[in-house]
Design a protein around this nucleic acid. Structure first.
Lengths: 253, 253
DNA sequence: ACAAAAGTGTTTGATATACACCCATGT
DNA sequence: ACATGGGTGTATATCAAACACTTTTGT
């Protein structure tokens, strides 16, 4: 939580540069050790948790804004980003409002404004991310999806909506290019799908289906060193992958 | 187009009541005589065409705002409304900006603001709509989807995006309850699907599939008076229909 | 040698597609 | 009677689901 002086400075700066009443919140999904992870921030001093977010510069396209915000939190450029919903309940930031309302007069106070927030979700390669706190936070970390802290404001709803959208997306679009490392094995990819869908899939049917999409290249090398039979490595066929992204495919799980 | 005085009054009123920088635009789909229709507005004096839209009251939930706007344009309450995208290009309202920028100083001029617009699409029963122009328009009419006027700003893009979303939605949700009259025949419903998808479907397979969803009731009565064999009438089974809406179903066309 | 993981193939059922015939009605 | 639209059934291909055996590798 900001002190009065910090709030003043923050507010002045924000009012000078950003569109009022509009914010962006991002649900950043990563995949690590067979678990879906989400990037969260812990606010300084109080242990309140939020999704990474920010505001839109006065002359900035909103896609750019979302990219800029995520670049700051993850170090990554060119992130797979998808706008999925606008949250516009006037009461959605009540907690924020209560927290800051007495510290500055309303017309100077950025946080007593009503904000509509545009929800984006991002799929990123866990290993390439450098979680970086923002000005208001003391920590930025990955959290296991099954073991989340209590998110403030409506951020739990935003997260849930993002996850629902992601699950729906699985049905008609390929996924994984943005979540997996360059090279991966079929069981690893299957694990990703199982984690997102939260259900077990049949190994053989999964493989057949995946290969059927024609978006994978089997590489020459295999992954050695495991305690068992060496699995093949695959990479995504970027061209076919992006084609499938735009055209979509049939059927569901 | 507004006169200088009208612009002043409009701007003052808008600034007093609405959130700045945010608008709502609606794509209202109706179905009539085998054609998909969209509700459009013609601006006073110049023949510029727009989608129905409006702004969000300072303390109003955005869903309410969209409903209010559509109630004014159609007379209908409880419309099927779906938020589908936010359009946030800083240049998107350039034409508007150029049109009005010289008529009022910028800080008093509502239309020289940048606006993000939240896109909603609505499915309505054509026959229940009373198209009603707004303050800026001289006409509000249904337009055939294949014979649209040249829409201003980015409204052609908004319409296209809405249509794409609607087509996608067909794949995993029922549709039609909001577009068809209470009672309808199977060929009529098929026509709706064919119109939205812009392709012919097989009569027998369509029927089998539709009935398979279990969201239709076959009524006792048949539609008499046509020049041919009397078709059965159907109505939607609201309970199963709404269940299918939330749960979705598999497969695609 | 064996346990654990990975590769592959087959059988079965469901669903989608394609297609043909019969029925009812107004002209 | 016939043209037109509407109702229904069946054969075939395609795809999803269920399932079993073999191979590799480290211990």
């Amino acid at each position: 939580m900001l002190t009065e002086n910090e709030l003043k400075e923050y507010s002045d700066n924000a009012r000078a540069n950003y569109l009022p009443h509009i914010s962006i919140d991002c649900v950043v999904f990563g995949f690590h050790e067979g678990l879906l992870k989400v990037l969260v921030l812990e606010v300084k001093n109080d242990s309140h948790w939020y999704l990474p977010g920010g505001f839109v510069l006065k002359e900035e396209p909103i896609e750019k804004a979302a990219n800029r915000i995520l670049k700051e939190r993850t170090g990554l450029d060119e992130i797979f980003l998808q706008q999925f919903h606008v949250f516009g309940d006037p009461e959605r930031a009540k907690e924020h409002f209560e927290m800051y309302k007495d510290m500055l007069p309303e017309d100077e106070n950025w946080f007593t404004n009503r904000f509509l927030t545009i929800g984006y979700y991002a799929l990123v390669d866990f290993h390439h991310v450098t979680p970086t706190p923002d000005q208001l936070s003391s920590a930025c970390t990955w959290c296991d999806l099954n073991d989340l802290p209590d998110l403030k404001l409506d951020h739990a709803l935003i997260l849930k909506t993002a996850l629902d959208t992601l699950r729906l997306q699985l049905n008609y679009q390929p996924i994984g290019y943005n979540l997996m490392p360059k090279e991966f094995t079929m069981p690893e990819l299957q694990k990703l799908y199982e984690t997102i869908l939260d259900k077990k899939l049949d190994r053989r049917n999964f493989q057949r289906r995946m290969l059927g999409f024609g978006i994978l290249n089997r590489l020459e090398t295999q992954r050695k060193g495991g305690a068992h039979k060496a699995p093949f490595l695959y990479s995504f066929d970027v061209e076919h992958y992006t084609a499938a992204l735009t055209e979509g495919f049939k059927g569901g799980w």
